[in-house]
């Protein structure tokens, strides 16, 4: 939404959109499609995306037409003798050097302009979110709001958000296709992704840089909410978990305590459950999915996960101290689903 496109580009974009949408239509609904755009950053890249797509398609059509013509027209029909021995034509060759060069310049100028526009620092008042890539899940921290969550990031619509992308182990890549592409999470570095989301709704993303065994299962959700809903969500997330692990005396907290879960997981409000290795579980039941976006967050999934994390997520670093009994699984499931 940063620039108002001229009519020509409008038409071209419309045609391109419908063409690509027709192709996209062939494959049903792909929620991670790069053709859905829902942020100013995605709009900004869209112009270049379409321009370059059209130029390359046009060049392709010309080359294929020429090739088809030549192959058909000049096939050997059994004529006598040898064809005229043409060694070259300097003027022609200079021409077909200059034309691609001109096309390259035509593509390079908007490209460079977009690179610098997209690299602009985050505006004042942007919601700061620290995204930490870990094998194989995402941690999202809102440093100014005091919220930490996992695999599900909420942002307000119409307000700039500024992601600071870091990694805790190997290189990951935060890919939110509908919001303007991906940025790598490189250990020892901080990368930035700034955009303003447009429509509310649930969106999906995924780690794009190969990061080991369960790279394929490192998904995430992005929830765009109205500002007021977002603020409400923040307040809910800031609140400590209900109940005290030690004092409650209920079987769930007890199992959580004795099962060793506290070594890696945080349940805020309980100082002894302050592990930072695994996801923060303070409000785990409020999230739509578990296992970094691969399972719906319901009792059946939770049981599946607790019975065999390695089976759900190969290589998972969630090493249970012992195989949980069905009783333990059930107790923990009930407890975790209460952590709204």
């Amino acid at each position: 939404m940063s620039n108002s496109p001229r009519p020509v580009r409008n038409v071209a974009a419309a045609v391109a959109t419908s063409l690509l949408a027709a192709l996209a239509g062939c494959m049903g609904d792909a929620p991670q499609s790069t053709l859905h755009k829902n942020s100013d950053l995605a709009d900004m890249t869209w112009g270049v995306y379409m321009l370059v797509t059209w130029i390359t398609l046009a060049v392709g059509v010309v080359v294929f037409a020429l090739l088809a013509y030549v192959v058909f027209r000049f096939r050997d029909r059994g004529e006598e003798g040898i064809p005229e021995q043409v060694h070259g034509n300097t003027r022609l060759e200079i021409a077909w050097t200059l034309v691609p060069l001109a096309l390259v310049v035509a593509m390079a100028i908007p490209t460079v302009r977009t690179i610098f526009a997209a690299a602009a620092p985050a505006p004042e008042g942007a919601v700061k979110i620290k995204a930490v890539g870990k094998q194989w899940w995402w941690e999202f921290e809102y440093p100014e709001l005091g919220v930490t969550t996992a695999n599900e990031v909420h942002i307000p619509a119409g307000v700039p958000v500024a992601f600071e992308i870091v990694s805790a182990d190997v290189i990951h890549s935060l890919w939110l296709p509908q919001f303007g592409g991906k940025r790598d999470a490189v250990p020892g570095r901080t990368n930035h992704l700034t955009f303003t989301a447009r429509d509310t709704g649930n969106f999906v993303g995924q780690c794009a840089e190969y990061c080991g065994d369960s790279h394929a299962l490192m998904k995430l959700r992005l929830v765009v909410q109205e500002e007021a809903d977002f603020q409400r969500w923040v307040q809910e997330q800031k609140a400590p978990a209900q109940g005290d692990l030690v004092a409650s005396g209920k079987p769930g907290p007890k199992a959580f305590l004795e099962g060793g879960c506290i070594a890696c997981h945080q349940v805020r409000g309980n100082p002894i459950a302050a592990g930072r290795i695994g996801p923060d579980l303070t409000h785990v039941a409020s999230r739509g999915t578990i296992g970094s976006g691969i399972l719906d967050n319901d009792a059946e999934s939770m049981r599946r996960w607790l019975r065999d994390p390695e089976g759900v997520k190969p290589g998972s670093l969630m090493k249970l101290p012992h195989k949980l009994s069905e009783q333990e699984v059930e107790t923990l499931t009930q407890y975790l689903l209460e952590l709204k």
Binding site: T45, F64, S173, A208
Partner: peptide, 25 residues
């Protein structure tokens, strides 16, 4: 014919804004 297709898609991800969509896809 085939190299032309590969060359043209190469031109596409030579442009970083597009590459941010296409990289690692």
């Amino acid at each position: 014919a085939l190299f032309t297709i590969g060359g043209l898609s190469g031109i596409m991800h030579a442009s970083p804004p597009i590459d941010l969509h296409q990289q690692d896809s």
